[in-house]
């Protein structure tokens, strides 16, 4: 994931608050992925307009955390979603 990459949830993939299990999930074709607080925080910033660099800067500022660490964690998480086609990337 490069700083200029723009992550976007493709059509058919969406965030959903699961009130029965009291958790956020990512709904995708024939799958539901349970999100932890970190995963939800990252995906909540994915809006299809801001770049990976902008998103991770925002998260680093909000959680007062080192941006390098945030980038590493976010790239791992988003990369795994991308492999499963739950996330697209444009430039």
């Amino acid at each position: 994931m490069r700083e200029t990459d723009i992550p976007v949830l493709p059509r058919g993939v969406r965030l959903h608050h699961d009130t029965v299990r009291d958790t956020w999930v990512l709904l995708a074709p024939e799958r539901a992925v349970t999100l932890d607080a970190v995963g939800h925080a990252i995906l909540s910033e994915v809006d299809g307009t801001r770049s990976f660099g902008e998103i991770t800067n925002t998260l680093a500022a909000r959680y007062d955390a080192p941006v390098d660490q945030i980038r590493k964690d976010s790239a791992g998480f988003l990369g795994a979603l991308r492999t499963r086609l739950y996330l697209d990337v444009t430039e």
């Binding site: 959903h16 699961d18 029965v20 299990r21 999930v25 709904l27 024939e30 799958r31 539901a32």
Partner: peptide, 9 residues
């Protein structure tokens, strides 16, 4: 949905 179903086929 109230029961916890997320995916409907």
């Amino acid at each position: 949905a109230d029961l916890g179903v997320l995916q409907l086929h």
